[in-house]
Structure formats: C-alpha cells, structure tokens
Amino acid sequence: MNSVLTIDSAIVDAIVAHARRDHPDEACGVVAGAIGSDLPTRHIAMDNAARSMTFYEFDSMEHLRVWREMDDSDEEPVVIYHSHTATEAYPSRTDVSFAGEPGAHYLLVSTREPDSEEIRSFRIVDGVVTEEKVNIVDATVDA
C-alpha cells in the first residue's frame, strides 16, 4: 500500500473550488482512476444528500450510477473526498465508522479558514487511520 497520494494540481483546485462553493455545508465527491493505477484522473463532484454543515452522505442513486460508470470504464474510486467546514482536515469517528473503501485515499479539505485550505490524505482500513503525504503534481491529466 502506497504511503503517498499523487494527485494533479488541477484536480486539487477543482476539489477546493467545490468545497468553497458548498461552504458552510460539507462537500463530497470522488476522483476515479484506472483500476490498479493508484492515479486519480477523473473528478466527480457528488451531491451531499445530507446538505449539512456537519454530515455528508452520497445520494444513493447517484452513488450507484457513478460506481457503475467506473465499473464500465475499468475505473475505481482512487480518492474519496469531503470537506470539514469548521474543524481540521482529520477523519472524525463518523468518517472512520463509514469508511468502506479500503483501497481509496480519503482526502479531507478544511475550509474553516477563509483564505487558505488544509488538505490532508488518509488510508482508513479496518478502523485504523494512517495519514499519508499528498504529492501535488502538474499536468498529469486534463481536468
């Protein structure tokens, strides 16, 4: 298992823009990539069905549709992201309880500061949280 998330700056910018747009509600989404590549290439902003400042939840029908699209394209959810809008970018107990994609990088963005974002990434496997480095690179994809 890699201890680093390598992700294109254009995708990070799109995730941050999504989080800013939905602030003070939490924003959530996925970045798909080819199975086994560990490289996130396709950003998909998801609806937060909970529309809440302290919860997020994928809409179950959108979830099914997006997961099927990935399946059909031989992709998998390389990154699952959400924002915390008043607290740090660290997985809450709720986040850990729900984390059901052991192969994914769980990216958290905190938008509590108006001028800067905290962006951190974690593996969450069997309830164990392991922080990893985020390596932001330029121009691996057209986003």
Partner: peptide, 21 residues
C-alpha cells in the same frame, strides 16, 4: 443485486451521526 458501502461521514461525533443516519 448490487451492494455498495455507503459513503458518508462528517465532522460531528458518531452518536449524533448515528441518530441522523
């Protein structure tokens, strides 16, 4: 039949989230 792990979470504590969900 398709089974997917729900993707959910958030900043609030688990007890409140459990009630919410």
């Amino acid at each position: 039949i398709t089974i997917l792990p729900a993707v959910a979470g958030g900043a609030l504590g688990f007890a409140a989230a459990a009630a919410f969900f």
